[in-house]
Nucleic acid binder design. Structure first.
Length: 481
DNA sequence: TGAAATGTTGGGGCG
DNA sequence: ACGCCCCAACATTTC
């Protein structure tokens, strides 16, 4: 239908990469391409995510420029901007990789209808999940439990091999105007907390692969057990790269699958690592089938749960002032680096939801704003999991003891000392529960409780009892369902 | 991808 | 020699 050299627009979203980008690759096979990034005016993204996304866009723009391609940046309503760009450039086609969040899907359906009425070819591609959510069902219904979901996925599907970066690419004859990234306000100014993020991360597609290789070198052979030790460099830290699509799940899958063939000794660790990729997949499939996941508990009886309204406790949790070192260290790692070790995410989440009985949505919102890897499906599914109201959730009565968890997973106190400088001098035997340390020990370490470091906001044993009592009030329905 | 309470077992001290 | 008690160590149940 369309002329072979007609222009194709390629929309970039949370897929800021050149390799394994099916929309880009297929468009480049046909003829000239114009990469476009649209920023919604109703954008709900978090601040840390924007910092990363803005930097990533800058890097993407530079890499496209090296290949002779522009990147057109525009803000506003896609249904207004996209037809305008199509008309101005005479484009014959618009390609994108599919989104799976409710808002994104709704917008993409609208765009597809609109563009087709204009006679434009529209194609969407699978690039951001291993398998499309509607293609992995059991008897026509979505899986609600992870293990059968993942086992069946491995048994039934052969994941596509990643595509290469398309080279060379043909540029459009002329380029419509682009906005300036600096005008989007995605880089914080007052105060400029991005300096702290920048000290911890290198953004972009090349950095994603450097991180992957660093993980293979220093973490992978410890992964199966070591992934639970927040003081050790045994986890991949690939989550922000995945969240912004600088690396794709298929690239990760195949890289590690091939590695398992070469290094049979690593097989156990690779299986454990790829299982975590499975949790991401599971969360996205859940979100696709249950679009209320970010706001509403999957177990409806949790709508009646007697949560507490306690802004002071929420604030103390957010700022790492609960008096429980493992919780506070985690919240400070999050605040300073935009990321938190997954074991610690579970501990701090359990503390907020069970010890403080603050609604999980409050924790979800804070993570959404502060995580550079903020991911709608992972974030909402994981909070529901910890809160006990998810499909395949931990039972509500599974309450983490922050002291035991710390002793088990940070036995030397390395993680505490890294993120809580006031406690650095405390001996390891007392670093996880400083309120129980003898006065001379505290004095020698230069710690005055209530001054250098808070006393516990709540007594964990009492808080646990109160949480279980609160759960009793909705338990009848839980057992029924 | 918990923790605490409760139950069971077996060794050793002791009358 | 024997029974009793204590309690650590481990297992099971319950929340």
């Amino acid at each position: 239908m369309s002329h072979p050299t007609a222009l194709t627009l390629v929309l970039f979203r949370n897929d800021l990469r050149l390799a394994d980008h099916p929309a880009l690759w297929h468009a480049a096979q046909k003829g000239p391409i114009l990469p476009v990034y649209l920023r919604s005016t109703a954008d709900q993204s978090g601040l840390a995510w924007r910092w990363w996304q803005g930097n990533s866009l800058q890097i993407l723009k530079a890499r496209l420029a090296e290949r002779g391609l522009p990147l057109v940046l525009r803000s506003g309503q896609a249904r207004e901007i996209l037809p305008e760009i199509v008309r101005r450039t005479g484009a014959a086609a618009v390609y994108w990789n599919r989104r799976y969040d409710p808002e994104g899907m709704r917008e993409d359906e609208e765009l597809k209808r609109l563009l087709k009425t204009m006679g434009i070819e529209v194609r969407s591609f699978a690039g951001n999940l291993l398998v499309e959510p509607w293609e992995h069902l059991r008897e026509g219904r979505p899986y609600r439990v992870f293990t059968p979901f993942w086992k069946a996925m491995l048994a039934r599907h052969q994941f596509a091999r990643p595509l290469p970066e398309p080279t060379p690419c043909t540029a459009p004859a002329d380029t419509p105007k682009s906005e300036d990234l600096a005008d989007w306000g995605w880089q914080p100014r007052h105060p400029d907390w991005s300096l702290s993020l920048a000290a911890h991360w290198r953004v972009g597609e090349a950095a994603a692969w450097e991180r992957l290789h660093a993980f293979v070198d220093e973490g992978l052979t410890h992964y199966a057990e070591g992934r639970n030790l927040p003081g050790k460099p045994y986890v991949s830290r690939l989550s922000p790269y995945l969240a912004h699509g600088e690396i794709s799940p298929r690239q990760i899958w195949w890289h590690f699958s091939d590695l398992a063939q070469e290094q049979p000794g690593s097989h156990r660790h690779i299986e454990a690592f790829l299982r975590e990729l499975g949790w991401r997949e599971f969360s996205w499939h859940l979100l696709y089938h249950f679009p209320d996941l970010p706001r509403e508990p999957l177990r409806p009886e949790f709508g009646q749960f007697p949560w507490r309204d306690d802004p002071a406790a929420l604030r103390a949790w957010q700022r790492g002032r609960t008096g429980y070192p493992i919780v506070d260290a985690g919240m400070r790692e999050l605040w300073q680096s935009g990321w938190m070790h997954n074991r610690v995410r579970m501990i701090v989440a359990s503390f907020l939801v069970k010890d403080l009985r603050v609604p999980w949505q409050e924790g979800e919102a804070w993570f959404w704003d502060t995580l550079v890897d903020a991911d709608l499906a992972n974030n909402s599914a994981s909070w529901q999991w910890v809160a006990g109201c998810g499909a395949d959730a931990a039972p509500y009565f599974r309450v983490f003891n922050p002291v035991l968890q710390a002793e088990k997973f940070d036995p030397d106190g390395d993680y505490i000392r890294k993120w809580l400088p006031p406690l650095r001098q405390l001996p390891t035997a007392h670093i996880h529960a400083p309120w129980e340390a003898p006065a001379p020990v505290l004095e020698k370490a230069g710690v005055t409780l209530g001054k250098d470091y808070p006393r516990p906001l709540v007594d964990h044993h009492q808080a646990r009892e109160a949480a279980l009592a609160a759960w009793e009030t909705i338990r009848r329905q839980t057992e029924g369902g």
